[in-house]
């Protein structure tokens, strides 16, 4: 399956890129497992996750064609 990954703010600085497209075996996996595959590290505790622009947690399922975003707490307004 192919998944688009996006990083924002300090997470973009940490990963050294704004986005990536990864091709993975299988038809679905959790966000937490996706993060482990792309970073080799546990997900930082304050990281927020969005799948297809909706807030989710690490247990959410990711499927082919999804857009997954990782970012720190939001500070708008």
């Amino acid at each position: 399956m192919s998944v688009k990954i996006r990083y924002f703010a300090s997470m973009r600085d940490r990963m050294g890129k704004a986005e990536d497209t990864v091709v993975l075996e299988g038809s679905a996996m959790t966000v937490a497992n996706l993060w482990k595959k792309i970073s080799g590290q546990p997900l930082p505790s304050n990281t927020l996750i969005a799948v297809n622009m909706e807030y989710k947690d690490g247990n959410a399922e990711v499927k082919n064609g999804d857009e997954v975003a990782f970012f720190p707490p939001v500070t708008g307004g």
Partner: peptide, 19 residues
């Protein structure tokens, strides 16, 4: 709403960590 502020201070640029 997903917005993030990065401030420029005399000590350098820093991402604001909380509102």
């Amino acid at each position: 709403a997903p917005f993030w502020k990065r401030e420029a201070t005399p000590q350098g640029k820093r991402w604001v960590e909380h509102n």
